[in-house]
Design a binder for these strands. Structure first.
Lengths: 181, 181
DNA sequence: GTATTATGTAATTGATCAATCAATAACATT
DNA sequence: AATGTTATTGATTGATCAATTACATAATAC
């Protein structure tokens, strides 16, 4: 569905509709990551932005829709990071791994969101997570293939596997799990 | 903490206190796995056992305590499975992998519980999950070391990583993620 | 300078649940 | 029968929240 709807993009940080949407989304990432999808309240999100709770519903139809948007933003960033890594074919996988570890530091909240969403049983969220996994798998596959790496699939799987362990390590705060990757 | 409290252990499947506890725990695994920790209600668990909702609280002080017990049961089984695998040193890791994939089929619900718990932000549950990861890591390390495998840590990490991807594949119902491991 | 739209809030509702409590039924033991 | 214990429930409460409604104010246009 729609997400790019910017008419007004003055340099000034005005409270335009689009800005608000962004602010809310950013607050949502933080609040959901901190409290988890179910315990997080729309009031918390509102408070963080400095608006009233009902006003959130001007921008997102439901709490679920808000969460899905936050989740998509996280997936977008992961895909973007992978697609932007520059390295020689021999070092590509390694560099992408490094970039991901970096991501778990700079945008931990978005990673936390992904791990949370993996465990959520609501069908729309499960679907979003399946889509997320597919998108990430696809970009990794495409990059490794373009780099001319043979027998791509096992490499991709191993790469994703490491990513999943990274995630858990980040979420649980257990860096020791990640050391020997 | 305490769990063995059996005075009456007739062959007969009476409604002894211990039996009830087990029944509730088993129901809880299923209900939590199906609905997720937060959406699952103690009433659902009770209904599944065929008892009243308040009666659940005779056996578990809080919903959280019930979830923690269910989670521990899941971890126990994983650890047990790994500790019981028999194979030559060269095939040990491979066989343990196979055993785990088998586990994700025979006791999917318990695996689902683990993935869910990874994303839950309540401190007692996070602690339980850290403990769970440590226990699993320890048993894998111990087995690989005992089998005389050199440079254990990287092997262990790679093994755990694959496990995490297995989990996600199982939870999201995406077997294709697991094929090329 | 009034109509209209965008930006916002306060107040409220309707539903859901975890948890408690007082009571009862069923079963042993003496 | 009297006494005690174990297993169990119905009724209720207290709190939390997503979502709605109805109202207010500021900006823009006409």
């Amino acid at each position: 569905m729609g997400e790019s709807d910017h008419k007004t993009l003055h340099a000034r940080a005005q409270h335009t509709s689009t800005n608000r949407r962004e602010e809310i989304l950013e607050a949502a990432v933080a609040v959901f990551a901190e409290s988890g999808y179910y315990r997080a309240t729309t009031a918390q999100v509102a408070e963080r932005v400095g608006i009233s709770q009902p006003y959130v519903y001007r921008f997102f139809e439901t709490k679920e829709a808000l969460f899905l948007a936050a989740l998509e933003r996280a997936t977008d960033r992961i895909v973007r990071v992978f697609s932007e890594v520059q390295a020689s074919p021999e070092q590509l996988a390694e560099e992408m791994g490094r970039a991901y570890v970096e991501l778990t530091r700079t945008h931990r909240n978005e990673i936390v969101l992904q791990v949370q969403a993996q465990g959520i049983r609501d069908e729309p969220i499960r679907q979003a997570m399946r889509s997320s996994m597919r998108r990430v798998k696809d970009v990794v596959t495409q990059r490794l293939m373009t780099a001319g790496i043979r027998n791509t699939q096992p490499q991709v799987s191993a790469f994703l596997a490491k990513g999943m362990l990274c995630n858990v390590a980040a979420v649980l705060g257990m860096p020791e799990l990640t050391e020997c990757l």
